Amino acid sequence: MDETLDRFLPVYGHRAVHGITLAAPPERAWAALQQVTLADLPLPRMLLAVRTLPSRLLGTGPDLLDRSVPLAELFRRDDRWVTLADEPGRVLVLGRVARFWDPVPRAPVRLGDGGGFLAFGEPGWAKAVISHEVFAHGSGSRLVTETRIQGTDARARRRFAAYWFLIRPGVGLIRRSALAAAGRRCAGPVR
């Protein structure tokens, strides 16, 4: 997976990696991850509700709190994210350019595709990639999610660093909760 992420964001200032080993074959683990909804994640749902409150009060941005829609679909519904790599049943990489630190997100940067993501370099923004990958691991499988973020200039890197300091624990909670929910859908993690 590092090769794919390195192709889109080889230099990054912030990174979070989370994984879970499951007693299920990769195809079952992948299907389980694709079915996880916010209904499976009560505490992360609350964190997302707090984070999106300014946008919801203003009536802007997509509805990312639908409890019945799989998270994978919510991300793809949100036109702020572009698919960078998609190998069904194995890996999905999404990218986004934003000023994540703004309480109310601005209009999304229209990247079009991976080429647009790579080419974007306007100062004052941060580029983020999120990957989900599954691979065989012993008699089961391993699900791994990785997030990388890099500011497009020094000021954006400083602003994002302050924001990341505040939200990183929540990001980790959301990722670990989603992986655990996939594990529950597969009859539980090996460890």
Rank of each mutant, 00 (worst) to 15 (best):
R80A: 03
V129L: 00
R159S: 14
R99K: 11
Q34E: 14
G116I: 11
G59S: 07
G61S: 05
G95K: 15
V97Y: 06
V93E: 04
P108Q: 13
R168P: 04
L118E: 10
W125L: 10
R15C: 12
L65K: 09
H137C: 12
D102F: 10
R90I: 01
P25I: 12
A136T: 12
D113R: 11
R45G: 08
P108V: 09
G89Y: 13
P62G: 07
A126T: 12
R99Y: 02
R191N: 13
A16W: 03
L41F: 12
R80E: 00
A126F: 08
L43R: 13
S139H: 14
A161W: 05
G121P: 12
A128I: 12
G95M: 14
P44A: 02
A85C: 09
T147A: 07
Q150V: 14
R175C: 00
H18R: 15
P26S: 05
V129P: 02
P10N: 10
F135I: 15
V171D: 09
L53S: 08
F120D: 07
A161E: 10
E27M: 04
D79W: 15
E73C: 07
G112H: 11
R28Y: 03
T152D: 04
P42R: 11
F120L: 10
A119N: 03
D2W: 04
A126Y: 05
F75G: 00
R96G: 07
G95L: 15
V134H: 02
G151N: 04
R67H: 14
V134N: 08
I174F: 15
V91R: 15
R106D: 04
D102Y: 10
W164N: 02
G151L: 05
A128H: 09
D113M: 07
F75D: 02
A180M: 08
L71Y: 11
V129K: 11
T52L: 13
A29V: 01
V134Q: 10
S141C: 04
E73F: 01
R77P: 05
V129M: 00
L57S: 11
A85M: 08
G89A: 13
V91F: 01
A128D: 07
I174A: 09
L143D: 02
R45Y: 08
G115N: 06
D153K: 13
V93F: 05
T21I: 12
P26H: 03
L64F: 05
L5T: 07
R142L: 09
G172A: 05
V91N: 06
T147D: 01
V129Q: 03
A98G: 09
E73M: 07
